[in-house]
């Protein structure tokens, strides 16, 4: 009976996370278009529903009913699997993220985390980077020059940012002494003053930059940038297969926002009068907005500039940060 209860609880949690995050990801596309529009002094979607809010439904119907084209010479099984990898890995990564503080529902204490493993942060980062296989396989299986260029750039991107993510996170972890996201959150219980962003500002900035690279957002969206490689890995995709890539991308954005908020900005601890659950939602919203803001304000970088940035600037800085933290801690 006890085992069965755990299984049922986990399944319910997983379905909830899937539904809520997929909904949030869809809504984020609307927000993105609106925010970008306002930053460029346009109105954005306006015609479908009040202020274009039903544009979401219209886009959904369009994506689902569009003809599903599989190019004749592509390697079909891999071409069809690739779009599934993106959302699958993004949602799997969320299994180890604690979303909210514990709360009681009908006299039953709910831990809003699907699997509380000891190495939560490593799991999230590792599985999220598996998502880079989606653009790689998509680019290599659709027989297309632009797609292949996109795939080659994916490899460059993964090999560049992964080192920075790992090394930048190491310094805060040395201070906390645990890889569990719950422990990391509890370390910053003492209000705004105890946020790790004040103690580890360099690590915070580095992790944020690497997060942009991990989610393929501007300025590091070089694997699909229209001005250079048409649409990169997604050139040959249409309809819902194309949509799946973007569900994955937005889900990844939400995961990275949760990670940054939990590691550096106090997670779901209450701030002053704001309860913890609301506090983390506000932080997430801010980071989603930051992703869009940067997209509106910054130009793209070239692949060689990305490699230069990651290997020659960010990695030495991260190493220096680890060294300094070590000296201070000893």
């Amino acid at each position: 009976m006890g085992e069965m209860a755990i299984v049922i609880e986990t399944v319910i949690k997983a379905i909830t996370v899937l539904a809520v995050v997929a909904g949030m990801a869809a809504f984020a596309t609307y927000i993105e278009r609106k925010v970008l529009a306002f930053m460029q002094r346009r109105l954005g979607p306006m015609h479908v529903g009040p202020h274009g809010i039903l544009q979401l439904a219209a886009d959904g119907i369009k994506l689902f009913t569009k003809e599903d084209i599989v190019p004749q010479n592509s390697i079909k099984p891999i071409f069809k699997i690739a779009p599934v990898i993106a959302p699958a890995s993004a949602f799997t990564a969320m299994a180890a993220v604690p979303f909210f503080p514990e709360f009681t529902l009908f006299g039953y204490t709910v831990h809003p985390i699907i699997a509380d493993i000891n190495v939560g942060i490593l799991f999230v980062m590792g599985v999220a980077s598996v998502g880079m296989y989606a653009p790689l396989l998509a680019g290599m299986s659709s027989v297309n020059k632009w797609a292949l260029l996109g795939a080659a750039r994916t490899v460059i991107q993964l090999l560049s940012f992964e080192v920075v993510t790992g090394l930048s996170i190491l310094a805060p972890l040395m201070m906390i002494g645990s890889l569990s996201l719950i422990d990391i959150n509890d370390y910053q219980m003492g209000g705004v003053g105890s946020w790790l962003a004040w103690k580890q500002p360099l690590a915070f900035v580095l992790f944020m930059i690497a997060g942009f690279a991990e989610t393929n957002r501007t300025p590091f969206d070089l694997i699909e940038v229209e001005s250079e490689v048409v649409s990169g890995y997604a050139t040959d995709y249409s309809g819902m297969r194309w949509g799946l890539f973007f569900v994955g991308e937005y889900a990844n954005m939400i995961t990275v926002s949760f990670l940054v908020s939990i590691i550096f900005l106090g997670g779901y601890n209450p701030i002053w009068f704001i309860p913890g659950g609301l506090a983390i939602l506000l932080k997430i919203s801010f980071f989603i907005f930051l992703f869009l803001w940067v997209r509106a304000a910054w130009p793209h970088v070239r692949p060689d500039q990305l490699m230069w940035l990651c290997w020659k600037v960010l990695m030495p800085l991260a190493l220096l940060n680890i060294l300094l933290t070590g000296i201070v801690l000893i």
Binding site: G126, S129, V130, M132, Y133, L158, L159
Partner: peptide, 10 residues
Amino acid sequence: IIVYTGAVMA
């Protein structure tokens, strides 16, 4: 997971 993602990617 982490090591083999990068390795197989290379």
